[in-house]
Amino acid sequence: MEKPIKILVVEDEMLIAANISLELTNLGYEVTGIIPRGEEALMHINENQPDIILMDINLRGKLDGIETVKQIQNQYNIPVIYLTANADEEHFNKAKATNPFAFISKPFKKLDLQHAIELTINRLHLENNQNNNSTKDETSPFILSDCIFVKHHERMVKVGIKDILYIEAERNYCRIYSKDKEYLLVITLKDLNVKLPSMHFLRIHRSFIVNLSQIDEVAGTHVVIAKKAIPISKTLRIELLKRLQTI
């Protein structure tokens, strides 16, 4: 099932935040929240991870936008677009050190916002393609916090991570089995395993990666997902059981 890109707005001027949220919704994105404080943003992300964060640099409270992003980056790899009304050299250099995907100076136009987000999504796609040595075309999957974009019928489609059952290796290809469709990817299982979020997925066999939340049964030599028995190596069975206790 294809879903909209999820964006978190961290902005303490609520009129500006509400306007940004409206613009994002009109552009077809999903706003996961409007958060005025860095501390609250950290809590929000733990509950509902966005694909992109719009972060005001000059937040009130103990954490400004830059410090908030540093703490986020300790746990998550989420693209950040900074919002700022203070574009002096000192703030710019501090923010630049956190490797943001874009800067937007306030006040900004709707087109500035639209272009920054589209460039961020495009950069994610390009970086994932460059990291995948098995192909140099646009067939490579790219992964956000709750979905994976894959090539399907000549277009990139968004597949929700929670809908993926398991992934099977087919030589230099991978086949994703979701609840209602299958997708063949031009990437090795090894390379895909590096890209997938480890909190959701585990490689339990040289030929299989499973979605931990989809496991129905764990036996001695296999797991069962959607009535299919998937083999598990002895060395990874202990790791699997540990992981299942934490989700």
Rank of each mutant, 00 (worst) to 15 (best):
E2F: 04
P4V: 14
P4H: 12
I5A: 03
I7K: 04
V10A: 01
E11F: 08
L15A: 09
I16F: 07
A17G: 15
I20T: 13
S21V: 05
G28D: 02
T32E: 09
G33D: 12
H44A: 10
I45D: 02
N48M: 13
N48L: 13
G65T: 02
I66Y: 00
T68D: 02
Q75W: 07
Y82R: 00
L83E: 00
T98W: 01
F101V: 01
I104R: 01
K109D: 06
L113W: 08
Q114R: 15
E118Y: 11
I121D: 01
N122V: 04
L124G: 02
Q130M: 12
N131S: 14
N132M: 08
E138D: 13
S140A: 10
P141E: 01
V150G: 06
E154I: 05
E154N: 15
R155T: 12
M156I: 14
K158T: 12
G160L: 14
I161C: 09
I161Q: 10
K162H: 13
D163Q: 12
D163R: 11
I164P: 01
I167W: 12
I167Q: 10
A169I: 08
Y173L: 07
C174V: 12
Y183W: 03
T188N: 04
T188F: 11
T188W: 11
L189P: 09
S198K: 11
H200W: 03
F201A: 15
R203L: 08
R206M: 12
V210M: 14
I215M: 09
I225N: 09
A226T: 04
K227Y: 14
A229L: 12
S233Y: 15
E239F: 14
E239Y: 13
L241K: 08
K242M: 06
Q245F: 08
T246Q: 13
